[in-house]
Computed example of a mutant assay.
Amino acid sequence: MSTTTLTQVGTPVEMPSAPPRRSVVGDTLIVLTRELRPTLHDPFSVVFSLIQPIFFLALFGPLLAGNLGGGLSDGEVWQWFVPAILVMISLFGSTTVGSNLLFEMQTGAHERMLVTPLARSSLLVGRALKEIVTLVAQAVVIVLVMLPFGFRLHPGGALLGLVLLAILGVGISAVSYALALAVRNQDWMFWVVQQTVLFPLMILSGMLLPLDGGPGWMRALARANPLSYVVEAERALFAGDLTAAPVLWGFVAAALTAAVGLAVGIRSMRRGD
């Protein structure tokens, strides 16, 4: 016994609709919004994270006034030191991207993100941009606090300085992301590597103290440190000297750091899938 299936002639057959086209920019905005949501719910966390930089300003500032030369005014000392503090904030924030990723791995949130149709690169860049947004908010607070002490703000240079820090931050965040993926089974190694690399980079960048009087080997290492070029560029930009040679070299160093960092980070993500 057989059955016959009748179909109505002329009835259109519905074809499965194609999935909506996605863009890396849109996916990055989704990740950025997700990462910013906890900060928006608790904005005071951004202010509390400024305690350490403010301690550096309060304790290193008076020392620098003597070490940079007795002829310098307080305002000139702050023109030298405040941009370096902003680089420090960017550096600390960018390197914590990996630690946040490790926490999400432990809670299973990262695995849930991986099964979404979001582009893999957006997971990395979105997290990095979250730190840049936080940096901008912190930079505004730092500048407003230091204006009464003689710090002079040049808006054009300050905006370019934040762009420079954003480029650098994306590269460092990507390296931090890759490190977290590499040590996911030994998360304590993340902090060992971070602290081992972070503080020598800071000292050899001339961020806290000038290196002009240091030994030759230290000055040679400083010249090989891309962070030192960014610090010099930030000082020139915040002083309003937009055409200074250090500005060009700072952007070159930041762009190379971003390119290498993204290449390493995206490759690590693909291997980790």
Rank of each mutant, 00 (worst) to 15 (best):
G171Y: 08
G26M: 02
Q79Y: 01
L123T: 04
L181R: 08
L159K: 03
G98E: 00
P210R: 01
V260M: 04
Y229E: 09
P38S: 04
A180W: 02
M218G: 13
D241G: 05
V145L: 15
L160T: 03
L129G: 10
I172R: 11
A245V: 15
N225A: 02
N185D: 13
R21M: 10
G69P: 05
A253K: 01
G98Q: 02
M207N: 03
T4S: 13
V31Q: 01
G214R: 12
G150K: 04
V175T: 11
G216P: 07
V252S: 07
E234V: 12
R271K: 10
V77E: 01
G66M: 10
W191E: 14
T3Y: 13
L262P: 05
L144F: 09
V143W: 09
H154L: 05
T33R: 15
Q52K: 08
L144S: 10
S45R: 14
V25N: 02
L101A: 02
F44K: 11
L237E: 00
M105I: 15
P62H: 09
A182S: 14
L129A: 09
Q138K: 14
P16M: 06
L29T: 05
V260K: 09
I54F: 13
T134P: 04
G206S: 06
L144E: 12
M1C: 10
E232I: 02
S45P: 02
T39Q: 09
Q8T: 13
A178C: 07
I51G: 07
V31C: 06
T196K: 03
F190R: 04
P210I: 01
P83Q: 07
P20F: 08
G216H: 09
Q138N: 09
D241L: 12
V193I: 12
L208P: 02
L221C: 04
T243L: 14
A18G: 06
L129R: 06
M15I: 11
D74G: 15
I172T: 12
V125Q: 03
S268A: 15
P200A: 05
E234G: 14
P38Y: 03
G93M: 02
M269N: 11
L164I: 03
D273K: 12
L40Q: 11
A166G: 13
G216L: 10
L159N: 06
I51W: 10
Y229Q: 12
I266M: 05
E111H: 06
M218Q: 09
R223H: 15
P215S: 08
A178G: 11
G126V: 12
L227S: 06
S205E: 00
M113R: 07
V183K: 01
T28Q: 04
T4L: 13
V145A: 14
S268P: 00
